[in-house]
Write a protein that binds this DNA or RNA. Structure first.
Lengths: 219, 219
DNA sequence: TAATTACTAAACTGATCAGTAAAATATTTT
DNA sequence: AAAATATTTTACTGATCAGTTTAGTAATTA
C-alpha cells in the first residue's frame, strides 16, 4: 500500500472545510460583512488555525474565488442527435448550473466586490463567461461549416444565444434572491430564446423550428 | 415675494449634500465597507448632524436607494421617423444611461447587497428594469398592431430586444469596472442586436434591415 | 437685541474585528 | 513510550465602527 501520509489527509480535509465555510459566509454576508471569527466558527476550526492555513482575510478571499472559478465550467460538449437537440441540451445544462442559488450568490459577491478586487472580477470573467463563450464559438463555427448556421461574427452569435436564453431570468435573479425562476419559467425563456436564435441564424429555420417543437412538446 | 424660509433651504441643501456623499461612498465601498464617519467627512458635516438627518446607517442606505430609483428612468418615447430609427435611438439612449460608470457602480452595489436588503433589490427591479420593460412592451405592441412586427408574447419580445442589445456589454462591465466598453464596442453590439431582432421579429425583415443599414452606415 | 434653533467639535461607550501570543492538549511519527 | 508536530483554548492588542453625550458656537427669527 502506497503511503498516503495521514497528516496530509487531515490537512487537506481541514483546508476544504475552511474553504467551504468561508465561501458560504462570504456569499451570504459580503466581504466586509464577513468576520474571520464567523468563518472559524462555521468551519469548526480555531482562529489561529485559520490564520495558519490562510495568512490574511484578503488572501483567503482571493484563494476561494480563484479556486471557485475552476468549479465553474463546463465545456460545451453536449452530445446529441442533431444541432437543435444539442443546443437545447446545452441551454438546460447551462441554466441548471448558472441559476443555482449558490452560484447566484457567488456571482452577486463577485459583482459587489469587483471594484475592491478587480483581479477577482477579471479571473471570474476569464474562467466563466469567457470560457463558455469560447466553447460556444467553437461549436457554432462547426455548425456553420456543416451548413446549418449562417453568420459573420461567431462571437456575436454566441453572445446573442446567451443573451436570448438567460439574460432575462438571470438579471432578475441577481436582484431578487428570493424569487429565483422555476423550471417552468426557465423553460419559457429557453424555448423562446432558441426559437429566436434559430429564426435569425439557421440556414433552414423552418426545419429547425419544427425540430425544436418536437423536442419541447407542442405549445 | 413669497416667503421661502431660509432654514428650510439650508436643510434641503445639506440633506442633498449628505445624500450625494453617501451614494458616492456606498457605491465605492459597499454597505459594510462604508463608515458613517467617512460619509460625514465627505459631506463636510458633523456626525451628529448626519444622525439627526438620517436616524441610522440602514435608514440612510435605504433612503438613498429608494430615492435613486426615480433618477433611474426614462420612458420609452424616442420619437423618430420610423420604427427602425426609433429602435436605434432607444438603444443608444438606454445604453448611454445604463453604461455610465456611476450607474454601473450603483447596479453593483444593489446586486451585492440584494441578499441583505431584499426590499432594495425589489424596489430597483420595479423602478428600473420592470418600468423599461413595460415601456418596451407598449411600444412593441403598437408596432405589431401597425403590422410591422409579429410575435405572440410581447414580454418575451421585449426581453429579447434588451438581451440582444445590452446583456453582453453590461454583464462584462459589471465584472470588469476598469474596462467599460467604448462607444465603438457598444455600436457593434447594438447594430448586431437590432439586426437579429428585426430578422426574428419584423414582418418585412429585408426592408427593415436595409433601413437599419442606412442609419448605421455601411459595414 | 434676545430667544430660538441648528450645527459643530470632541470625546466617549460598547461592541466588533483582524491578527497575535502563550500555554495546554491532542495527534502522529519514530 | 518519547519526540515532534499540529491544533486548540483563552486571552490579548490595537484599531474601527455605530451611535450618543456634552458643551459650546453660529445662524436664523422675532
Amino acid at each position: 500500500m502506497t503511503a498516503i501520509p495521514q497528516r496530509e489527509l487531515n490537512r487537506l480535509a481541514k483546508q476544504r472545510r475552511i474553504l467551504d465555510a468561508a465561501l458560504a459566509v462570504f456569499a451570504a454576508e459580503g466581504y466586509s460583512g464577513t468576520s474571520m471569527d464567523a468563518i472559524a466558527a462555521k468551519a469548526a476550526v480555531s482562529k489561529p488555525t485559520l490564520y495558519q492555513y490562510f495568512g490574511t482575510k484578503e488572501q483567503l478571499f482571493t484563494e476561494i474565488m480563484l479556486a471557485e472559478r475552476n468549479t465553474m465550467l463546463l465545456a460545451f460538449d453536449r452530445p446529441g442527435t442533431d444541432m437543435v437537440a444539442e443546443l437545447h441540451s446545452f441551454a438546460w445544462h447551462y441554466a441548471d448550473t448558472v441559476m443555482r442559488p449558490e452560484f447566484l450568490s457567488l456571482a452577486r459577491l463577485i459583482i459587489g466586490e469587483a471594484q475592491r478586487f478587480p483581479e477577482i472580477g477579471r479571473a471570474y470573467q476569464a474562467a466563466g463567461p469567457d470560457r463558455v463563450l469560447a466553447g460556444m464559438i467553437t461549436y457554432l463555427t462547426r455548425q456553420r461549416e456543416a451548413g446549418k448556421l449562417t453568420f459573420d461574427d461567431a462571437e456575436l452569435a454566441a453572445e446573442d444565444l446567451w443573451g436570448l436564453i438567460l439574460s432575462a431570468p438571470r438579471n432578475q435573479a441577481l436582484h431578487l434572491p428570493d424569487r429565483i425562476p422555476t423550471r417552468e419559467q426557465l423553460a419559457r425563456y429557453i424555448n423562446n430564446g432558441l426559437r429566436v436564435f434559430l429564426k435569425a441564424y439557421a440556414t433552414d429555420p423552418a426545419r429547425d423550428l419544427a425540430q425544436l417543437q418536437t423536442i419541447t412538446g407542442t405549445p
